[in-house]
């Protein structure tokens, strides 16, 4: 059973359509990327899922039904617009927010201590939030999101303000949560993080779903007639089936003629005695797909 089922949701603000008949599902044990350019309707979609906003039409099912007060204890949310009580001590603030998620004060206190140690914030626990650096505040917010061991984790730009060491730590943490069977919805503009972490994704543009599916599946579907070749010997001057050969990184990118398959080219190269080190169908990066989809969809018809 999917953790989240979004079906045909629409939300208008005045004349503007923020979300337009969007549908997608998110399953347990996956990291699901919610992508889209600024103002595409991602945050509105999340707020509808979380029942902060009501959809004008369409249905949302979370953890097997509509959102309830009890279910709020089973989800962790790190919003894009975020912050903590600036004048309150770090540990007090975290314990309060953890108790709001249904933990007892004693449990909350114990777990906060453990998390603060894991996130290397324990020595700063008596400081006011405003005395912490931006990165530390970001880690504190991640603690708030995860402290109550939620089944559904929704995180918006989880890596902003983090240094490479902490970015790696958060990535490990998200993988760990996925392996425990948690459902993770991640909103980010950092496409390389999505490529590294996400299992599936949805791309929303102008409120509409424009791309939806498994990450590799999408990349394959956007791959063109191109292969990347690294060879120990030079490529023959004449290569049947190749429309164009260009230097690419330390190898070559071969653009195939429309009727030629990569298999046919591989056979030709082997027959010509080229010693191959690498032969790979060139998949576009998520960045490239993102730009292609968004600019095509956004351009005037």
């Amino acid at each position: 059973m999917p953790t989240i089922e979004v079906e045909q949701i629409t939300k208008r603000f005045g004349q503007q359509i923020a979300v337009d008949h969007a549908s997608f599902t998110v399953d347990p044990g996956e990291i699901f990327a919610l992508l889209g350019p600024n103002g595409a309707g991602k945050t509105t979609a999340i707020r509808i899922i979380l029942d902060i906003f009501k959809a004008d039409s369409g249905t949302v099912t979370v953890l097997g039904g509509p959102m309830t007060e009890e279910k709020k204890d089973r989800l962790g949310y790190l919003p894009e617009e975020r912050g903590l009580y600036q004048d309150v001590q770090l540990d007090r603030s975290l314990v309060y927010l953890a108790t709001l998620k249904g933990l007892s004060a004693a449990d909350a206190s114990r777990k906060v201590d453990a998390m603060l140690k894991r996130f290397e914030l324990y020595d700063h626990r008596k400081k006011k939030i405003k005395e912490l650096s931006k990165g530390m505040q970001q880690k504190a917010q991640l603690i708030v999101t995860l402290i109550h061991d939620p089944e559904l984790i929704i995180i918006d730009e989880p890596f902003s303000a983090l240094d490479p060491v902490n970015t790696q730590m958060v990535k490990d943490l998200l993988r760990e949560e996925r392996d425990k069977g948690k459902c993770i919805v991640m909103c980010t503009h950092q496409m390389h993080q999505v490529e590294e972490l996400a299992d599936r994704l949805v791309l929303i543009n102008e409120g509409k779903v424009v791309l939806y599916g498994g990450l590799q599946e999408i990349r394959r579907s956007y791959s063109g007639q191109e292969v990347d070749v690294h060879a120990l010997t030079d490529l023959p001057a004449e290569l049947p089936g190749a429309a164009r050969v260009a230097k690419h990184n330390s190898g070559y990118r071969i653009h195939l003629e429309p009727s030629v398959t990569p298999q046919a080219l591989l056979q030709t190269l082997v027959e010509r005695g080229v010693q191959l080190e690498k032969f790979e169908i060139a998949l576009p990066t998520l960045d490239e797909i993102f730009i292609q989809v968004v600019t095509t969809a956004g351009s005037p018809q």
Partner: peptide, 15 residues
């Protein structure tokens, strides 16, 4: 303050 420091959304998804 909760609006200014953006704690509102976290609180609203808890209570």
């Amino acid at each position: 303050e909760e609006k200014e420091n953006r704690t509102m959304e976290i609180v609203l998804t808890s209570v």
